[in-house]
């Protein structure tokens, strides 16, 4: 996959999200910054509770009301070059932004579809809310449903319960593209589907991306899916991006101990007998996170400084960033254990 590195669609700058809980303030996302380019697929990886979903919801301003978002902005660049800060949008501007500029596909397709209306009505309603007529919407939907390898006429007439899980997920994918957004945000779109269904969703997604060239922000706890479809991978831990870089860099030349630990815990089918290790302990309490590097208590590489001062995010070659004091040792071990497979 190649994408346009000169064309940034979404620039997230120092974004933080906190919740007020009874025990104190939960720092669910801290100082997150990244650029999403046109046509780029960014995968967010990490354990549950590391802030992936919080970050995604913040990007579409769909966090619960108890959440406070702060930072230097989430700057979106329209197709005509105009720029706007999503965090400053009025509700009306936000509604216009969603679906037209940025759409979402969530896990559990059944929950995202209205059970009592046909797919066709969902299409017309979505389009109408954004000023697109029924005929145009119908035409676009037929084409998109075909692109996701469904029988357009049949699916348009169907109610959600008449479709299988994999079909529903593909319907959502098609509808998410109806208004030709530049960005699609996906939260675990292939979790809880069967292997062959997952395969067809991934294939369809890859093909659509080539044909329509949208950008994707993709959350997955499944490293294999990230390895397959991401251009860029960001590892999140305790609400922070601790490592981000091109997919091959992050997988074969990991620079953060947490990324390396995640990879060492993931079984691979074609790897023969494997020595795998779980990560000890559990993700930290975000109300009272550990000092220094938040991963240090679980980290096999940790030394004294790790528990004292938070490591800065440093940029290495090829736009690879990581915040780890032991990055050289991590890198050396990563290169030994994760050799690039011969294609």
């Amino acid at each position: 996959m190649t994408y346009d590195r000169n064309h940034v669609v979404l620039s997230v700058r120092d974004l933080s999200v906190t919740y007020q809980a009874e025990r104190g303030r939960v720092r669910a996302a801290s100082h997150v910054s990244f650029d999403l380019h046109a046509g780029e697929t960014l995968a967010l990886i990490g354990e549950s509770g590391c802030g992936k979903t919080t970050l995604n919801l913040a990007l579409i301003r769909q966090l619960p009301k108890t959440a406070r978002t702060s930072g230097d902005g989430v700057i979106y660049t329209y197709r005509d070059g105009r720029q706007a800060d999503i965090l400053k949008f009025s509700d009306r501007e936000m509604r216009r932004y969603l679906w037209s500029e940025c759409s979402m596909v969530f896990q559990g397709a059944l929950n995202s579809l209205n059970p009592i209306i046909r797919v066709s009505d969902m299409v017309y309603d979505t389009a109408k809310a954004h000023g697109i007529g029924r005929d145009e919407a119908h035409k676009r939907a037929l084409r998109l449903l075909e692109q996701v390898r469904l029988d357009p006429a049949r699916v348009m007439r169907s109610y959600p319960h008449e479709l299988s899980g994999g079909m529903r997920q593909r319907v959502l994918l098609a509808v998410s593209l109806l208004l030709r957004p530049q960005i699609v945000i996906m939260d675990e779109p292939t979790t809880a589907v069967d292997i062959l269904t997952q395969r067809s969703i991934l294939d369809v997604l890859k093909q659509l991306r080539e044909e329509l060239n949208f950008s994707v922000i993709f959350i997955s706890h499944d490293l294999a899916v990230a390895a397959e479809i991401a251009d860029t991978v960001a590892t999140m831990y305790a609400g922070e991006i601790v490592e981000i870089g091109p997919v091959n860099e992050v997988f074969y030349r990991s620079r953060h101990a947490y990324t390396l630990s995640l990879l060492n815990a993931a079984p691979r089918l074609s790897a023969g007998a494997e020595t795998l290790e779980s990560i000890p302990g559990k993700p930290p309490d975000l109300i009272d996170p550990p000092s220094g590097c938040k991963f240090h208590e679980r980290c096999a590489f940790a030394r004294e400084v790790c528990s004292q001062t938070p490591p800065p995010l440093i940029t290495y070659d090829d736009e690879h960033q990581a915040s780890c004091y032991e990055t050289e040792r991590v890198l050396a071990q990563s290169e030994v254990t994760r050799k690039v497979a011969a294609p």
Binding site: R149, S164, G166, I195, L196, T197, Q198, R199, S200, L202, D203, D222, L223, A224, V225, A226, A227, E228, V247, N248, F251, Y252, L263, A266, R268, L269, S270, A271, R338, V340, A341, A342, P343
Partner: peptide
């Protein structure tokens, strides 16, 4: 088909896997 369909946590490997295309996706 199952083994071919499984993505692998290894970017080069998973992108060069030989896929088996089924005649139908419907179970």
């Amino acid at each position: 088909a199952l083994l071919a369909a499984v993505p692998e946590a290894d970017p080069e490997l998973t992108r060069h896997k030989h896929m088996l295309r089924l005649r139908s996706d419907d179970i």
